[in-house]
Design a protein around this nucleic acid. Structure first.
Lengths: 198, 198
DNA sequence: GACGAATGGATAGCGGCACTCTCCGCTATC
DNA sequence: GATAGCGGAGAGTGCCGCTATCCATTCGTC
């Protein structure tokens, strides 16, 4: 309960409707918002500052949907503070070029490409200089997943909370995918072992 | 530099070879280890305690490879402190059953299934009670990715550092996949838009 | 209408964690 | 022989996510 007071102070939750100077009323929407905050923090690993940033965008009523999606995407895709290896940056560039528009992406230097470059830099730094070769199969698998994601968003109806659905789908989706990847490792390696010594 | 002294104290880095009581020599292996620690922390988001745990297993010389892989997997797959929704647990159970051995997985209650249940619980709590329906396409995509992962490990040669390669591949891979997923979203949504109004 | 419990609001404090600072004794170097 | 720098150990710092305390008010109920 003191945590809720804290979130209120931090502006993560809207204040309740004051029925009297020391009595506020909270409805389902407040509860829902609280659960959203907890989900973003616990599963998505967002900091309070980032959650506030995201919620601000979610709550913005004017502004185009497209612009809001972009802003939120950037907010929830913050790269770590890894110094970028120029070679890794080149790898990212090559990858982006390879899958460039019209059917690909041509995103210049967003947080997403930064993330990717940071991860590949880290890989290089520990002696895995060819990790970028895995990017193409990764994209192949991720295209299937991305299609499922878009389907999911679309079927939820293009209501007012598309942005919210996207945030949830992205962050909780990341966590789910982490787990599913590990399960897939077990499944595939079992199949390989079965085929091999068979 | 004081950070390195700190890591030494915390047992994340092995002490250098003392050439004299106050002069230690550090070779490439030490540097490599340092970079590994930084990568696990900055990209993998591991805490110092978890890094130590992982490194302990990596450094263990005896013990079977299989057992070490399992231990490390558990260490780098720690779920958040989310209370589990029984319905979400049921969803996970159903998913596991659906893809059960011999070609699937039958992992009982490991950290991985915990992670999955936690994520689905969070989804439910924010009103996404049907998120588990996305699990099958997720697995389909992840199987492609998992195959690439195993290929990668295999082609790196079954040297002494398989566990290390697995840790790196898993954690840095997670970060890479996060980024690639976002790029795939952009790519696929562009394709859909192109097909739709076409 | 009196009284204890509870609420809203604000301020200060706590605990964990990843560092960082400082001091000490020593020794390689000039 | 002065001094700069190292290794080692303990205490201190800053941030962040809470948590505890305090006060005035007011709701419940008797």
């Amino acid at each position: 309960m003191p945590t809720i007071k804290y979130y209120l102070r931090e502006g993560l939750l809207p204040a309740g409707v004051l029925t009297s100077p020391n009595q506020a009323h909270y409805d389902d929407e407040h509860l829902r918002r609280l659960r959203l905050v907890r989900a973003l923090m616990e599963v998505g690993g967002l900091s309070i500052a980032t959650v506030r940033e995201v919620l601000t965008v979610v709550d913005t009523r004017d502004e185009s949907l497209h612009h809001k999606l972009g802003t939120v995407q950037e907010a929830i895709s913050q790269p770590g503070s890894v110094e970028l290896d120029p070679l890794a940056v080149k790898d990212v560039q090559a990858f982006c070029d390879r899958h460039a528009a019209p059917d690909g992406f041509d995103i210049g230097s967003s947080n997403v490409t930064q993330m990717l470059a940071a991860a590949l830099s880290a890989a290089r730094s520990v002696g895995h200089a060819h990790f970028q070769e895995i990017l193409d199969p990764y994209l192949e698998g991720m295209r299937i997943i991305a299609k499922a994601d878009l389907d999911y968003i679309a079927h939820r109806g293009a209501r007012d909370d598309v942005i919210e659905a996207m945030v949830i789908g992205t962050l909780i989706g990341d966590a789910v995918l982490k787990a599913v990847r590990r399960l897939a490792h077990a499944q595939v390696s079992r199949e390989v072992l079965a085929d091999g010594p068979g």
